[in-house]
């Protein structure tokens, strides 16, 4: 179904359980809103007619004024609305805790396009194909300004920030073609930074991956190519002329730094070291010779490179080399 089929639509389609519950939340809230406001509107209108100047109305025994009334119309609506605060917060926390088996899609925002990469390595520009019935986690980052990845069909959005990863997750449960947007204003073509989200059955998705399979081998496989193209091995491979720490099995290990601190080589450490090796994170017993790759390596290449270093493959391949 094409999303533009309907000329006028008054309610957006929903394609996840969270989205459906968000709809119930806002509908129930609207009912409460009406309960709180309609009496006020009716009262104002009724008083305006009933007590117009010159109307023979009984204005004696004026409104009883008491602290009790004031306190009660202060507290009762507040407590009622707090129900929705709790409900909203609960849904929010669910949407923050991705299940462990979620499929991870890497997303990169840049002026003015989205780039998505599937775990199997295929990447798409602006369009995104996803299987239903499977939790999906999107890890995203921006290459320039702040963007915001927005899927109305999941009632979900999250900012992409420069130099910091953010995440969101959802579990699609309905096939179809929907829209995705950038919802944080990001410059000239902000309104063209949108795309199509295609939700398909697992089988269709698998078939789509086959056909679209551009870069096989996944993130880490692509990362191997990056490792080669930047000639990282010239220094870091065992037996290289320049003495640099071996990267085999580095990920997750503890590293002693020149200033005596001991840090864990996690993902942030790897990224930092590549972008800016001089940031007081020199490993002990080594000299500072590595150039900084900030503004040299694009973020998506960096992602692949880090994925490669994280994968066991870096170890295996390096040990295999002479």
């Amino acid at each position: 179904m094409n999303p533009t089929d309907l000329a006028l639509r008054l309610w957006p389609p929903a394609a996840s359980a969270t989205a459906v519950e968000t709809d119930w939340l806002i509908l129930a809230f609207t009912v409460l809103t009406l309960l709180l406001t309609v009496p006020v509107f009716v009262a104002i209108t009724w008083f305006a007619i009933r007590y117009r100047q010159g109307e023979p109305a009984d204005r004696s025994h004026g409104t009883i004024r008491s602290v009790l009334i004031e306190i009660s119309w202060m507290l009762i609506p507040f407590l009622l609305t707090l129900i929705f605060f709790v409900w909203g917060a609960r849904l929010f926390f669910i949407s923050k805790q991705a299940p462990g088996d979620a499929m991870v899609i890497e997303a990169i925002g840049r002026q003015w396009m989205w780039k998505f990469q599937h775990p199997t390595g295929q990447s798409e520009i602006n369009d995104l194909h996803l299987p239903i019935g499977q939790p999906i986690k999107i890890r995203m980052i921006s290459q320039d300004v702040i963007h915001n990845l927005y899927f109305p069909v999941f009632r979900m959005q999250m900012a992409t920030l420069p130099d910091r990863y953010t995440e969101m997750w959802f579990k699609p449960d309905r096939t179809g073609t929907y829209r995705l947007y950038c919802s944080e204003y990001c410059g000239t073509d902000h309104s063209r930074m949108d795309g199509t989200l295609t939700l398909m059955t697992q089988a269709d998705y698998a078939a789509w991956l086959q056909n679209a399979g551009a870069q096989q081998g996944g993130q880490a496989g692509a990362g191997r190519a990056i490792y080669e193209s930047y000639a990282c091995g010239t220094c870091h491979d065992p037996g290289a002329k320049v003495r640099a720490p071996s990267l085999a099995g580095l990920y997750g290990r503890e590293v002693r730094l020149a200033d005596g601190r001991i840090v864990t080589a996690d993902e942030a450490y790897l990224r930092d070291k590549i972008l800016n090796p001089n940031r007081q994170k020199l490993a002990a017993d080594y000299k500072q010779v590595m150039p900084a790759f900030r503004n040299v390596i694009p973020t998506d290449d960096l992602d692949r490179l880090v994925a490669y270093l994280k994968s066991g493959r870096a170890t295996a391949q390096q040990e295999a080399s002479p």
Binding site: T18, A19, E21, T22, L25, I26, F29, T33, T81, F84, F85, W87, G88, A89, R90, L91, F92, S95, N148, Y150, P152, R155, M156, Q157, S183, E184, Y185
Partner: peptide
């Protein structure tokens, strides 16, 4: 404004 202050609703209608 209260709708927008509700976290789950805000995730949907923020910046719309």
């Amino acid at each position: 404004g209260l709708y927008l202050a509700t976290l789950a609703i805000n995730q949907h209608v923020h910046a719309t």
